[in-house]
Structure formats: C-alpha cells, structure tokens
C-alpha cells in the first residue's frame, strides 16, 4: 500500500444537502413573489431588491474580511436571503440610502455581532426592517399604489394599505361593513393588486413559494400553518362577537405581511424553535400577537413585531420544551 487509507468515524456517507443548497432553495421559493412585486410596482421593485441584496452581501463580506479577519462565507447564501427578505418588506419607492442603512443594521447589528450565521437570536431582515420603520416612519408607511409594470421608482403614486384603511376607519368610528367597501376585493388581495410592501401583496405567489419549500423539505408545515391558523381562529372569535368593529379572518390573513411572515420570516432556521411541539407554540404566539397588535396596538401592522417578540422566546422553548423520546413513556399492551 503506497497510499494511506482514510480512517474516520461512521457514517461514511453524507446526504447531499448543504447549507448553500437550502439557502438557494429559499431564494428559488421567493422568485414568484419577486416577479409579482415587479409586475405590480415596476422598476422600483427591481431597484430596491437589487440594492438590498447587494448591500447585505457586501456588508457581510466587508465585516468578515476586514473586521473579523475570518474566512469569508458569503457564498453560503444566507446574506442573499436576508437581503431579499429585507427588500420584500420595504415599500418599493424607498430611498436607496435608507436601504443601505437597513442592511447595515440587519447584517452588521442583528447578525454579525452575535457571531454570524447560526448565532443570531433575532431575524436579521426583520431587525433591519423594524429599525427602518422606527427611524424613517413616513417613508416606511407610505406605500406606492400598485400601478403596474410601468411604475417609476421615486415618483410613484402612493396609496394606503388595506390594514391602514381599516385602522383609520375604526378610529374615525366607521363600521367594518362600510370600510370593507373601501378596500380592494378579495380576488385583488389574493393576486396582490393592493398597496403594501413589495413582498407581502401577492398571496398566490407566496403560496406557490410555500408549496415549493414544503416539496423540497426545506421547511416543515408546523410554523406557517400554526401562525395562520391561530390568527384565523383568534380573529374569527372577535369577528363573531362583534362584526362591526372587528374584521374577519380572511381579511386578516390576506392583508399585510402575514403570509410573507408566516412562510418566509417566521420559518427562518436560526431564529425559530427546533422541535415540532415548540414550533406550533411559536407559530400560535406569532399569530395571536399579530392580531393583538393590529387590533389594539398603535401600528396598523404587527407581524414583524410579533415574530421578533417570539424570537426572544425561542431559546427558552428550546431549553424547556422537549420532544418525547423513544422509550420514554412506555405503554406496551
């Protein structure tokens, strides 16, 4: 034997899954949503998406290369996903410098200060988004109306989101049945022809992405289903109790960022719990918090806050909620 044999512990084979493949799987699942946002918001969507992705990846590269002096791992695709998700949470006409600042907070503060991929307790894209929402409230809450592919970037006509219409209306003492006439029809909401952040408008595109993620086994059903289910249940109870001041479940699910949040943001590997039991608890927490913030809070939309709040409980859930082990409680008959 001239060549030395390799010796290692079993297993000697490895599945073909890699972090990179998983991340690019998420990117593929986001493609329908990106296409939908380009269709509805035009050039602004392309510019915003490109700006967020480029700034997130560049910032991660700069931090790893020059501040941490560690091997650069931007090829794993996690910064790309963060950039895309950040972009999809923004209005399409937001100034570029704000996107760069948001990316710096997302990657620099929310991700790299905790030790990079795998160590951040809060979803980086959402931290970036919430930072922007608080810092630039007027830019972040005036959305362009979905004027179609030809929409320009900065000069887009702005319009309110269905959630904002309802929130304002309730404050002014209008009843839900009156307000329902002011908002787009359910069909328009499913397609995405409504005002809002780039990624949250088209329900159908998000659901296509969800099916792809499930098919590729990138995520499990637990979190999205429990977020949407708990939100639907909670709002149904209120709606049945008093349909005059509370909107129905279908409106709550289709409006705002619920689907984007439930499918892509809440399921972020790093910041979500790891076993099915806690996944469902986490999902229900997000659903109910979202409803509470929307109905009784001062913001019209609460998905990002709800997810960030539940992110904080994840370490606790991972420590105290344990799966039932094989052979733990035995009922042999």
């Amino acid at each position: 034997m001239n060549n030395q044999l390799n010796v290692s512990l079993s297993p000697h084979i490895h599945g073909r899954e890699t972090t990179q493949k998983l991340m690019f799987g998420v990117v593929v699942a986001l493609i329908p949503t990106i296409i939908a946002s380009v269709i509805f918001f035009g050039a602004g969507a392309i510019i915003t998406t490109a700006a967020a992705v480029i700034s997130c990846v560049t910032i991660e590269y700069l931090i790893q290369r020059f501040m941490l002096r560690k091997p650069v791992s931007i090829t794993d695709g996690s910064a790309l996903v963060t950039g895309l998700l950040l972009a999809l949470n923004l209005p399409s006409n937001i100034p570029l410098y704000m996107i760069v600042i948001g990316s710096m907070v997302a990657i620099g503060v929310a991700k790299m200060t905790f030790g990079g991929l795998g160590n951040n307790p809060f979803n980086p894209a959402l931290v970036g988004r919430v930072f922007m929402l608080i810092s630039f409230p007027s830019h972040m809450t005036t959305w362009p109306a979905p004027a179609g592919f030809a929409t320009g970037y900065i000069d887009a006509v702005t319009g309110a989101t269905p959630l904002a219409i309802i929130k304002e209306g309730i404050k002014n003492g209008e009843s839900i049945s009156e307000l329902m006439l002011k908002i787009p029809s359910t069909a328009e909401m499913i397609l995405g022809k409504i005002g809002g952040s780039m990624g949250e408008v088209s329900a159908i595109a998000l659901i296509i992405g969800f099916i792809y993620l499930l098919y590729k086994k990138i995520i499990t059903w637990h979190i999205p289903v429990s977020v949407i289910g708990s939100l639907a249940l909670f709002t149904s109870i209120l709606w049945i109790a008093n349909p005059d001041i509370y909107a129905g479940p279908s409106f709550h699910i289709l409006s705002g960022g619920v689907l984007l949040g439930a499918i892509f943001m809440a399921t972020d590997y790093v910041t979500s719990p790891m076993n099915p039991k806690s996944m469902i608890l986490y999902g229900c927490g997000i659903g109910i918090l979202t409803a509470i913030i929307r109905i009784w809070g001062s913001f019209p939309e609460g998905v990002s806050f709800a997810i960030l709040i539940m992110n904080a409980f994840v370490p606790l859930m991972n420590t105290y909620i344990k799966p039932k082990r094989f052979g733990e409680e035995v009922k042999n008959g």
């Binding site: 795998g118 790093v270 790891m274």
Partner: peptide, 11 residues
C-alpha cells in the same frame, strides 16, 4: 459550517 439550527437532525 456553523450550525444553522435547521432541526433536520432532530427530524
């Protein structure tokens, strides 16, 4: 690479 807490090992 670093653990991304994907929970595939638990599954």
């Amino acid at each position: 690479g670093p653990c991304i807490r994907c929970a595939k090992c638990i599954a």
